[in-house]
């Protein structure tokens, strides 16, 4: 029987050294056993590699940066929807989620479905509010504080022991061993991502990650824990392996159940060497760039998200393969200038 075609708009086509999750999400969608995915890629830059991956992305449109405002984004999405009849949209960047969550009811009324956290869920897990989040949900988190300027940084650091993690509100994190280092990282991150900057007590231990998905009604649909086995100079996981660690799956279940989380999420944790206790250090409100490992382990989270967004009932995954590895690689595509020219001039390809 021919599978139903679903038009799915996906962002995060920047499959670069610090990749967006879009291509991994698309690979999962293309492998769906339940539907035929037609992918409408949404890009911000002309050289996002996914734009040129014609075997994965059927059509591409540029969209405006979130900073331009919701109205501009909405009007661009309306235009794309008129041409492509989008069924489901999957935003994959932290920085754009605010806009997409705001626009979700309007998009839904247009027939564009999504499965996203609510604004409340999105806000509550912000890095600067992690202490509060940990207390509320009874989860261990490292002590953290938010600073907006150098004076606050100096004052707050007096209450921390070094090393201290200095983090941007969306991206980038550095380990500082002294006030001078912390100050330099404060300037480096704030120049790029603005303030606030988050300070977090460093926890000595093994870094672990979990990719998970919730149905928005308090049920965990799937979760796969992973340890990065190869980390690049910029701190990005270039290889990883799925783990058998029920405590991490339970943490994901607990969070999804207690928050009614809807959509994909990634937990970043550190299992403290001295105690074995897992500390939650971050919740990313979308699939991670390594989500295809979950697909490889038998849990197709992107497919589950689309089915739930379309109103289908999806049963939770019961298990996954342990010891599956992902290994990234870089690959040079040869592209025609005319494709670049077309996306650059018309914003469509």
């Amino acid at each position: 029987m021919k599978k139903q075609q679903i038009n799915i708009a996906v962002t995060g086509l920047n499959a670069v050294d610090s990749p967006g999750p879009g291509i991994a999400v698309i690979r999962g969608l293309k492998e769906s056993k339940h539907f035929e995915a037609r992918i409408i890629g949404l890009s911000y830059e002309n050289l996002e590699p996914g734009i040129y991956m014609r075997d994965l992305v059927d059509k591409v449109y540029q969209i405006p940066y979130p900073s331009v405002g919701h109205e501009t984004l909405l009007s661009r999405l309306e235009y794309i929807h008129r041409k492509e009849k989008i069924d489901v949209i999957i935003p994959n960047f932290d920085a754009e989620l605010f806009s997409f969550i705001k626009l979700a009811p309007k998009l839904e009324s247009m027939g564009i479905h999504s499965l996203l956290p609510t604004m409340e869920q999105f806000d509550a897990r912000l890095k600067g509010k992690l202490n509060e989040y940990g207390d509320k949900h009874n989860i261990l988190v490292p002590r953290s504080a938010v600073v907006f300027n150098i004076e606050e940084l100096a004052q707050t650091l007096k209450t921390f022991d070094y090393p201290v993690m200095v983090k941007g509100k969306f991206y980038e994190a550095y380990k500082a061993f002294s006030y001078e280092q912390a100050q330099a990282y404060f300037h480096k991150i704030s120049a790029k991502w603005g303030t606030p900057i988050v300070l977090q007590q460093f926890v000595q231990g093994q870094e672990l990650n979990v990719t998970a998905i919730g149905d928005g009604k308090g049920k965990l649909i799937g979760a796969v824990p992973m340890r990065k086995t190869y980390i690049t100079d910029t701190g990005k996981g270039w290889a990883g392996i799925s783990l058998a660690d029920e405590s991490l799956v339970e943490m994901a279940r607990h969070l999804v159940e207690s928050t009614n989380w809807g959509g994909g999420l990634e937990l970043e944790l550190i299992k403290e060497d001295s105690t074995g206790d897992p500390y939650l250090i971050e919740i990313n409100p979308r699939f991670p760039a390594w989500v295809y490992l979950a697909v490889g382990c038998g849990q197709n989270h992107p497919e589950a998200l689309v089915r739930m967004a379309m109103g289908e009932k999806v049963d939770p995954f019961e298990d996954y393969d342990v010891g599956k590895m992902f290994i990234r690689y870089s690959y040079d595509m040869i592209c025609d200038l005319k494709d670049f020219q077309q996306i650059a001039v018309t914003g469509e390809l």
């Binding site: 992973m226 086995t229 990883g240 392996i241 799925s242 783990l243 058998a244 342990v322 010891g323």
Partner: peptide, 17 residues
Amino acid sequence: KSIAISENGFVFNAARG
């Protein structure tokens, strides 16, 4: 319990990777 041992001497700790 999480340790798997292969005949060729490969040892894998599934809990830690």
